[in-house]
């Protein structure tokens, strides 16, 4: 017998069931999954206006943010880069390549980030107010590395795409995408570690800075 059969058989034997897993048992489990039962959510996540909550949670995570309209995104990026004293060249997602980047003095390359890039630019599938979280789904034009490799990650979040909780985000994935893509990447603030003396340090392997542009 293979390891697989042995493990499954042992589980069943110890639970007092004989034979292989039955079709009824599988049907029961699938039915339970299909229900997508939702557990209790923190009261705060439901009470407050999602945009306000999202902004407050961003602050807690040390995610900075600005609110502009879509056309002025390049100017906001230029302002942010100048303020943070970082080079104005971006590796970004294709969907934002049509913005007037050169007018803001920015060099925008629509491609996946590599190790030499200092600023990664992305959009997001949606954002979660409860925890100030960005959800990025993988697709050919939405490489995840742009949110991960460069020291600065700038992300555009349409205000209409802020949902109250993670459950709402999953529901949105199901209705708009269907099957989950290869990667669902939830980003909550710049990377950090506390592995040396439990002292929190911002900037571990991921970005040192996360800047959200709300449009």
């Amino acid at each position: 017998m293979s390891a697989r059969e042995n493990i499954l058989a042992r589980i069943r034997r110890q639970q007092g069931r004989s034979g292989p897993t039955t079709a009824e048992e599988m049907a029961l489990v699938r039915a339970n999954i299909r229900e997508h039962g939702v557990g209790p959510k923190p009261l705060a996540a439901q009470a407050e206006d999602s945009l306000e909550l999202f902004k407050r949670e961003c602050q807690r995570l040390l995610t900075t943010f600005a609110e502009v309209d879509e056309a002025t995104v390049p100017h906001e990026v230029a302002r942010y880069c100048a303020e943070a004293n970082i080079a104005k060249s971006l590796a970004g997602w294709r969907e934002y390549s049509h913005l007037h980047w050169p007018a803001a003095g920015i060099d925008y390359a629509a491609r996946a980030a590599n190790k030499d890039d200092t600023v990664g630019f992305t959009g997001c599938f949606c954002a979660i107010a409860e925890t100030g979280t960005l959800l990025l789904l993988s697709s050919p034009d939405q490489p995840k590395l742009n949110a991960l490799l460069p020291e600065t990650h700038i992300c555009v979040v349409p205000k209409a795409r802020i949902v109250p909780t993670m459950e709402d985000a999953f529901a949105l994935v199901r209705t708009e995408v269907g099957e989950p893509p290869r990667s669902m990447f939830f980003v909550s603030g710049p990377s950090r570690t506390a592995d040396i003396e439990q002292t929190i340090v911002i900037g571990a392997h991921g970005p040192y800075r996360v800047h959200v542009i709300l449009i």
Binding site: E57, E179, R182, S183, M184, S191
Partner: peptide
Amino acid sequence: TIANYLTLTTG
């Protein structure tokens, strides 16, 4: 309240 990165990989 949340960990910085949650990575859900499917296939």
